[in-house]
C-alpha cells in the first residue's frame, strides 16, 4: 500500500456557509497503479491531487503515506516526505523561464542536496532517456508545448519518485503531443513501476489508466 485516504473532508467558509471541496473521500492506492481522476470543473479533482501531494491540507480524516500518518506530521517532515517520494507535472508545465532545460531538470536535485557530480550524471541520464540532449541549453520559450511538457515530466521523474501526480498534463497540448505524453506515462508505469495519478477531462486519456475515479461536487461517485 502506497497511500490511504480515510474519510477526508475539506471545506472553506464563504459568506457564513460551509462549502465542501472534498466530502468523505476514501481511497487506497497500491504501488504500481495508474489512476485517472475525472469529473466536471469544480468537482474537486485538483484539490484531491493537491491533498495527495501534501501541498494542501484537509480539515478532517486520515491520510497515510507509506505508513506515515501525514495528518499528524509537522510541515517540515511533510515537505521532506513529498520531496523524496512525489513528483509533480502541471498543465501549464511551470518550467522556470529564466533557466535552461538542463538547469530546470537540475533544480529539484539542488533542493534534495545531491552532490554536483551526482546531479550532472542524473541530468545527463534524464536528457538521454527523453531524447532531449540536443535541447539542453535551450530556454522553455524556445520549445514547443509538447517539448516543454516532456521536460516537465523529466523534471518530475529525475529524483526517482514513487508517485507522479499530474494535473491535466495534456490540457495545453494538441492531440499528437497528448498521445506522446500519455504513451510515456504508460511506459513509465508498466516498465518502471512508477505509480501515477492523473487528473484529466479526456475519456481517451483516462483509458490509459488502470482505474478511474469519478468526482462530483467533492464526492466520489
Amino acid at each position: 500500500m502506497l497511500l490511504q485516504l480515510k474519510n477526508i473532508f475539506k471545506w472553506v467558509n464563504s459568506g457564513g456557509q460551509r462549502i465542501f471541496l472534498l466530502k468523505d473521500i476514501n481511497l487506497e492506492v497500491a504501488e504500481g497503479e495508474f489512476i485517472s481522476v475525472m469529473g466536471p470543473s469544480g468537482s474537486g479533482k485538483s484539490t484531491l491531487l493537491n491533498v495527495i501531494g501534501m501541498l494542501d491540507t484537509f480539515d478532517e480524516g486520515e491520510y497515510n503515506f507509506l505508513d506515515e500518518s501525514v495528518h499528524t506530521l509537522k510541515e517540515k517532515h511533510r515537505s521532506n516526505l513529498y520531496k523524496e517520494y512525489i513528483g509533480f507535472v502541471f498543465q501549464s508545465y511551470h518550467l522556470l523561464d529564466d533557466l535552461t532545460v538542463q538547469e530546470n531538470l537540475e533544480m529539484p536535485l539542488l533542493y534534495k542536496k545531491f552532490k554536483g557530480s551526482e546531479r550532472k550524471a542524473m541530468v545527463a541520464d534524464m536528457l538521454d532517456r527523453f531524447n532531449i540532449v540536443g535541447k539542453k541549453d535551450l530556454f522553455p520559450a524556445q520549445l514547443s508545448g509538447g517539448q516543454q511538457q516532456l521536460v516537465g515530466v523529466a523534471r518530475a521523474l529525475i529524483a526517482n519518485p514513487k508517485l507522479i501526480l499530474a494535473d491535466e498534463p495534456t490540457g495545453n497540448l494538441n492531440s499528437q503531443q497528448s498521445e506522446e505524453i500519455m504513451e510515456l506515462f504508460k511506459k513509465l508505469n508498466q516498465e518502471e513501476g512508477v505509480t501515477i495519478i492523473q487528473v484529466t477531462h479526456s475519456e481517451k486519456n483516462a483509458a490509459y489508466g488502470s482505474r478511474i475515479i469519478n468526482l462530483l461536487d467533492g464526492r466520489k461517485v
Partner: peptide
C-alpha cells in the same frame, strides 16, 4: 510567484 511556487513544489524551503 510562479517561480516561487514551482521551486517550493520541487522541495525548496522557506529560507532558501
Amino acid at each position: 510567484t510562479k517561480e516561487i511556487g514551482v521551486r517550493k513544489v520541487m522541495g525548496a524551503s522557506v529560507s532558501q
